[in-house]
Design a protein around this nucleic acid. Sequence first.
DNA 1: CCGCACATGTAAGATGTTACATGATTGA
DNA 2: TCAATCATGTAACATCTTACATGTGCGG
Lengths: 201, 201
Amino acid sequence: MSLRSALLTLLSAGPHTGYDLAKNFHSSVGFLWHAPDSQIYPELKKMQAEELIEGYPVPWGTKGATKTEYAITKVGLEYLNTWQGQPVTYRPERSEVRLRAAYFEFADDDDARHCLENHLRHYEQVVKDIHGQIDELREQSSDFHKQRLARYPEADHAKITRFKIFAYEGILKQAEAEIEWAQDGLAMLEQLKQGASLPDR
Amino acid sequence: MSLRSALLTLLSAGPHTGYDLAKNFHSSVGFLWHAPDSQIYPELKKMQAEELIEGYPVPWGTKGATKTEYAITKVGLEYLNTWQGQPVTYRPERSEVRLRAAYFEFADDDDARHCLENHLRHYEQVVKDIHGQIDELREQSSDFHKQRLARYPEADHAKITRFKIFAYEGILKQAEAEIEWAQDGLAMLEQLKQGASLPDR
DNA sequence: CCGCACATGTAAGATGTTACATGATTGA
DNA sequence: TCAATCATGTAACATCTTACATGTGCGG
């Protein structure tokens, strides 16, 4: 049900269309909880049926066209609070890259190396992306975030921003750990290629 | 298709029953790629149909009962090699705990703290479990691993063991990053409780 | 008037979770 | 003989992925 919570957290900043929300899943929240467009629209309908949000048509363009905007309800806000009180469910590990690394004896030398080089590149990109997100928060250049802060007294702004940065810092730490791991692995492969009979550690 | 690969890596150590394999998903490989029993048996059937493995009955107990043992085929071994050559698909982030942390403003003080304390405990347990796994490999106390090594010349043993330890070290680094993050978070919450108007960082 | 952003989905299939179900064997 | 382990699943559901599908509005 995290998709639901993610949508509600976005809507707690103010009313938005499904499209607005979907866009955010390509950046901001998307770095914490990803969801494709195809999941978002149906979920919004379900949430509306359960009165966590309400949808209403707003004019779009010059002709009589409309789009649907959704706003969080009181029930929705309560949902968020309840959600925060429930224990997190830790899903068991499922790491393709780790599984591969454990069985590199089935990989050609180049494949193993490419795997780790790619891993490195991937997480270097993550680091960049997350730094970008953190900068956006610090510089208040995110419309969503500005909108959110506007709903709270000034005294709370630092705290609310801090939470988001804290979450991103978690991803950052993860990514940095992955980068270190990949580098260690590349060193290990290099050592093995020298034919050295290396110790376990 | 990682479930498939995980099963094949296990069977590459020698023939086993579905039960043997399922047990291993509760420990060893289970720390890299988890799968519940209910996924394993059907997948084995599919893999047999595709001739990646072969199943044959072996006697079980004193009466005429039998169990099915599966052995990896040449096709299965090729599959593992091909798998290692393919690019890893990086699934987009989906972290419930991170999503929560980002929106701690909806949590009661205690709920936020409990969330992070629980996070800390969870990953401390992971660290213990993984150390246990690494010790098992170092001390050669894992039957599966002994069986695996027996299929390779002595000269390769260190390397094969090294890969597995390397994979576990990755999980270890992740877990340690999570522990740091949770500790930072608890400190942050403590600071906020003091009512200090803290800086972003 | 053309292309990109805006807007809203459906549908099929793969994968994963949870709960249930059943019987044989072995060791205490 | 009783409980734990061995052995093998099914069924229902939730979730996620991938691909497809369609039309409007707006700026250059």
